[in-house]
Simulated scan of single mutants.
Amino acid sequence: MTGPFMTESAAVRPDDVRIMRALQVAPRASFASIAAALGLTESAVSRRYRRLRADGVIRVAGVVDPGALGQSKWLVRLRCRPGGVTAIADALARRDDVSWVALTAAGSEITCAVRSRTREQREDLLGQRLPRTASVIDINAAAMLRQFVGGRGHYWAALRGTLTPEQESMLGNDGPPFTEAPVVAREPLRLTAEDEKLLDLLAADGRAGLVDLAAAAGLTPGRASRRLDALLQRRVVHIDVEIAAAALGYQTQANLWLHVHPSAVKSVGRALAREPGIAFAAAVSGPHNIHAVAHCRDLDELFEFTTDRIGSLPGLQSMEVSPLHHQVKQAGTLLSGGRLVEPSRRAAKRSDAAAGGGRRGPGLPRRARESCPPVV
C-alpha cells in the first residue's frame, strides 16, 4: 500500500490530512490545541475542518455501542432478486440501528451491520421483516465476536505516520485506550433520559460543545461533562471519525471474508488491524470467521494486497474477495457520490420509535412496498 497522502482529490491537501489524523487521535480536541500541535493557526484549522466537513470528506460523530447495553452486533448478507436490491438497501440505510450498508456481487447482494439497541428491535428486523421481504432470496447473519479495528479509538491505519509521535502526544486522547473488549458487556448500562439526549446530539455532531450538550439534556455544563466522561469510559459511546475513502484516492473497496484456523483468529485479526489497507476487521460467527473491509486505489492494487499481504498471513485457509459495487452508508452516515452526507436536523432529533430506546427509520418507497413488505 502507498503512504498516507492521497492527492487524487485536489480538494484534500497535506495539511487537511494532518488535521484528519489529529482528529483521529483526539476527536474533541479544540481547534486551538490542534493548531498548536500542527504548527498552524487556529483560524486555518477551523476553516479547513469546516470545508472538509461541508465537502463530505470527514465527519465526527458519537456512535453508541450496543454491546455496552447488553446487546450484540451482527453482520448480515442478503442475496436479492434483481430490481429490488436498491430499494431494500435504501430502506435499511434509513434505519438508525443499521450502521453500514453496501451493495456487492455486481449489485445483487447487500451487506449491512446491525447494531440494534434492544433484542426486540433486532429480532423484529432479522427474524420477521427481512425474511418476509419478497425480494430477499437468502439471509446469512453472523454475530460480531471481537472487533480488531474500526471505531472505539482504533482507527484506519492509513493515516498513521502523518504526525510525529510528539505531535500526537501534544493532542492527548479523548477517551479510554483501545482494547479488544467483549462485544457484550457483562454488566449492561441502563441509559437515562438525559443520556439519550446527549447521545442524540453527539450522533449529529461528535464535537458538540459542553454548553450545547448541557442545553440539549437539561443539565449544567459541569454535569454534562461528567456524564459524557462516564459514557466514554463505560464505552457506551465512542467519538467516531468518519473519512470518505474516495476523497483520499481509495477508489476501490471490498469485503473480505476469511476462513482462518481457530488458533490463528486473534493473530490474523491483529495483523489486519495494522494494515493501512484495512478499515475494519472483526471476528465473526459462521463459516467465515473473520470479516474485513479493504480500501485500495484500484482493482490491481486490491489484487496485490489480498494476494501478497493478506494471502500470506499464517493460519489463513481461504478468502472470499467481494468488491463493493456501491456503498450506501458508512458507520452511521449516508454517502452520496462517495462523500459523507450530513444528517438533517429532523433526523438527528427523531424520537425513539421502539421500546427501550430502539429507533427505526421511515418505510420503503412506494415501488418497493408494491413488491415486498417493508423492512423498516
Results as ranks from 00 to 15, higher is better:
R223V: 05
P177F: 00
R345Y: 01
V341K: 04
G56P: 01
V328Q: 06
A36R: 15
P323A: 00
E301K: 08
A61G: 13
G222E: 08
P323L: 02
A292V: 14
L272Q: 12
A264K: 14
S30A: 12
L92S: 10
G3Q: 09
A141T: 12
D298K: 12
R53S: 03
R48N: 14
M6Y: 03
D229H: 14
L38C: 07
G151Q: 01
E42K: 05
I139M: 15
G107E: 08
L198H: 01
P182L: 12
G356N: 02
R51K: 15
K197E: 14
D298C: 06
C112T: 00
E166R: 09
W74D: 09
G150I: 13
T333N: 10
P177E: 14
R119H: 11
A216C: 10
A113C: 06
I278L: 10
T252V: 06
A246W: 04
I239P: 01
I137Q: 07
R350P: 05
G218W: 04
R367W: 06
H326D: 07
R132P: 05
G70S: 01
L130A: 00
A254T: 10
V376S: 13
G70K: 04
C296P: 11
S9M: 06
S351K: 13
R77D: 10
P182H: 04
R21M: 01
V136R: 01
R346H: 10
G151D: 08
I139Y: 15
M144L: 14
H325T: 06
E109Y: 12
N173L: 11
N140A: 09
S336A: 14
G286A: 09
Q147S: 06
R309L: 15
E42H: 09
S263C: 07
R95A: 01
L302T: 00
D15A: 13
T192D: 12
P131D: 03
V241E: 07
A331T: 03
I278Y: 05
V237W: 05
E194G: 07
G172L: 05
Q253L: 12
C112R: 07
F305E: 08
L202R: 04
V293G: 07
Q327D: 02
R350K: 04
T307V: 03
V260D: 13
S99Y: 10
L258D: 14
R47Q: 14
L299N: 07
G269L: 02
I137R: 15
L163R: 08
A157H: 07
Q327P: 13
